[in-house]
Design a protein around this nucleic acid. Structure first.
Lengths: 197, 197
DNA sequence: AAAAACTCTTAACCTACATCAACGTTTTCA
DNA sequence: TGAAAACGTTGATGTAGGTTAAGAGTTTTT
């Protein structure tokens, strides 16, 4: 059930942010379950109850929304030591708006809302940690939103590869296009144009 | 310093979400300061340390980003019983990316990061409340982002006026255009087009 | 090893919205 | 109350990115 080596990574992540007793570390390790997700498999699927929050131990995910016209929009990519989940669904029980698909064979720790609720009661310090993590997520999304509405595609492209060097080796270009909010053809065109300068 | 009538509104807001002792209510009322903001005045200004978080007692604010080309982008409008602040700046001490301007004479309760920190230590239950509030904000922003990238302007316009009936009486049309991510001319044209159907 | 699926590129054409400019109306404020 | 500022509309024109289609290269599956 619990792999000590893997759970160490989650414990380290938390312990580097708040102080944990051995007791508390054990409670955390027991609350989370390890899950192997094969390349192309889904950790979260749209229109199902997305009642999972995951911490990425290894691998990469694309988190995306499938709109009413069938177009996919990548909200973010999630790497090692990132959280993956549909926050709206996790906290309300509503159906998920998001899909999370593994881009390579991946390993995550997952928790459901009931276990998390219990864990937060057992370790009140976690309330503060998760408040801060959520604030950080909100900050990141706010920056992403403002950049999306204020910068052109070339600027957003440069911002992405600067923030994630090497992402182009890991993520297919059409998914980068989707993250940028354009079609693959347009990204291809833009990159060709960039070479001219 | 503290206006009992006004502070009651903030206390009610909090007390409807977590249980508060009289003692705790008093601590909250003392931690927040009342502030009157005149129409067109700024509660938060870009590129200053935006170290304020405010709860709107009365009035309306537009919260917007001023980009490098001088264009304004409305992130959200804030009404009675909403929170206003630049979460990134408030929690990091960085300069604010956002401006918050009163659209009418308004009254808010404000708090700075140090006082909030202290308050959270005095009333640990507030950690949970603010975690949940932040989650809610993240949920709202995520929906806004996904709608922005997946729906056309007419759809976004309808979503806005459905979610905020009466907003067109309160907010100038060019600011609604800014919220929708287009220029005033384009919104004017779109509305004319809508009438034809 | 062959077939199927996926990925990227290029080109021609189209569309939604931006840009620039002008003008009438309403609101603000001195 | 009169001038100035803010607001909304319309028109002409420009452009970034969407749409459609086709083909070539690569990876995955059987």
């Amino acid at each position: 059930m619990i792999d000590t080596n893997f759970s160490k990574q989650l414990i380290d992540y938390i312990a580097s942010r708040i102080s944990l007793s051995l007791e508390e570390s054990k409670l955390i390790a027991e609350a989370y379950s390890i899950l192997h997700v094969k390349k192309k498999d889904y950790l979260i699927s749209q229109d199902k109850a997305g009642n999972i929050e995951a911490f990425v131990i290894m691998g990469t995910f694309r988190v995306f929304y499938n709109d009413s016209k069938g177009l996919e929009h990548v909200l973010y990519f999630a790497f090692k030591d990132w959280w993956v989940g549909d926050i709206a669904s996790f906290n309300s029980g509503e159906l998920s708006m998001l899909n999370a698909q593994a881009l390579e064979d991946s390993i995550v720790f997952t928790i459901d809302p009931i276990k998390k609720e219990k864990l937060l009661e057992q370790i009140p310090q976690l309330e503060k940690l998760f408040r801060i993590i959520t604030q950080k997520h909100l900050t990141v999304l706010q920056k992403r939103f403002l950049l999306t509405v204020s910068a052109n595609v070339a600027e957003r492209y440069h911002e992405l590869i600067q923030r994630h060097p090497g992402i182009e080796q890991l993520v297919p270009q059409h998914q980068i296009a989707s993250y940028l909010g354009i079609l693959p053809e347009s990204l291809s065109r833009m990159k060709k144009q960039l070479l001219k300068d």
